[in-house]
Amino acid sequence: MKNFLFRCYLRWMKFLCVFTGMVDSKVVILNGAGRSGSNGYVFYKWMLLNHPEMKTVLVEPWPSSHLSWATWQEIASARWIITTHQPFKVKKHQINIQLWHGVPLKRMGTMANNTKRRDNQRNEKLWHTTADCVASSSDWYETLMSSCMGIESRKYRKIGFPRLDALKHPIISRDELLKDLFKAENVDPKAKIGIYMPTFRYEMESADIMEQIKAGNFFAFADFDGAALNQALKEQNTYLIVKLHPWEMRLFDNLASHYSNIAFLNNDYLNEHDYDLYELLGDTDFLMTDFSSIYFDYLLLDRPIIFIDNYLDQYEKTRGLLMGPYAEITPGIKAGSQAEVLAAINQPDSAHWQAERKRWRQLTQQVEGDYCQNLFDYMMRP
């Protein structure tokens, strides 16, 4: 019912904005990706710095039923509407550029196990009628996206994703990151910084998993022991950043970690400093994730990735993965327990995994150059 009412709201606002004139130099970015690897937010910052002659407006959160009339007029008067989730524009002659918010590893749309046919058909029609350009990184990406959303091949443009520019240029130093998140100073330069970023686990529909996370077991491991984990990390000269999905972070009563070598990275920190998560990832030495597509982007850094697979069977049953077997499509050590995680962190990066990361990087990243510049050049083409 809420989705139906919101669609009615969007139609009504479009009707009210129909007579608003368009400005060729105006770009509106509808950012639904927050600060967790948002193509829209990274491109917005780049536009402000590099093209002040353009009027670039950031609208967030999106979608929202609480936007002001002035904001709707900004949206309606823009020539360019850039989206990170579903395509959107107010008028036919506006140009929608769809950046999406991740390379799909998890099933979605038509391919997902937990979606409805009517919703999938509505979404496919929306992509067909509204998206003018879909940013792409490779043939492989286009195949996955089209299998889920029914996107026509003519809509893709291999311009890459703006968020990847942020990977190459960390906005602060490693020392500053350690000081901000861990209150640590004069840290051994050889110390490692890892980040754990799981996918949205609520959709596994398991009360047990949510209870474990709420209790502080952010891995949802059967052998989880926070104090022991922290001590082992300390002995391994390693700091671990935990970046959970925003919904999961709300389960914690206190986001401030009482551990010396484990810190929670939440959206408040990113928003207060005007950072995107990807502007910090370049400072890390390894990534831990489960079924999140972030690992495809992290391949550009060519650093170790540890894959947490303790709920693999349950996730494949509930939503599913677009490819498999999981062990063959994930170029890194697999860990299903705290003991295995600590062993993986302590293991040197092997030539085997380096070769696997290179193979997957070549498959998924066929676009080079500055990605924000690629997008701008596409927009300004004759």
Rank of each mutant, 00 (worst) to 15 (best):
K55V: 15
T56R: 06
T56G: 04
V57A: 04
V57F: 01
L58V: 01
E60W: 01
E60A: 09
W62C: 08
W62N: 04
P63T: 02
S65M: 12
H66I: 12
H66Y: 13
S68I: 06
S68F: 04
W69V: 13
W72E: 08
Q73P: 03
I75Y: 03
S77C: 12
A78L: 02
R79C: 03
R79H: 14
W80P: 08
I81F: 01
I81H: 03
I81L: 09
I82G: 01
T83Y: 00
T84M: 05
H85Q: 14
Q86G: 11
P87N: 06
F88A: 01
F88T: 02
F88I: 02
F88D: 00
K89P: 00
V90M: 15
K91G: 10
K91P: 07
Q94V: 08
Q94F: 05
I95F: 10
I97H: 08
Q98S: 13
L99F: 09
H101A: 10
H101N: 11
V103G: 03
V103T: 15
P104T: 07
P104V: 04
P104Q: 05
L105I: 13
M108T: 11
M108P: 04
G109I: 02
G109S: 07
T110L: 13
M111A: 14
M111K: 13
M111P: 00
A112H: 09
N113R: 13
N113H: 14
R118E: 14
D119E: 13
D119A: 12
R122V: 11
E124V: 10
E124K: 11
E124F: 05
E124R: 10
L126H: 03
L126D: 06
L126N: 11
T129F: 11
T130H: 08
C133L: 14
V134N: 02
V134Y: 03
D139G: 11
D139N: 13
E142R: 15
T143C: 09
L144I: 07
S146W: 06
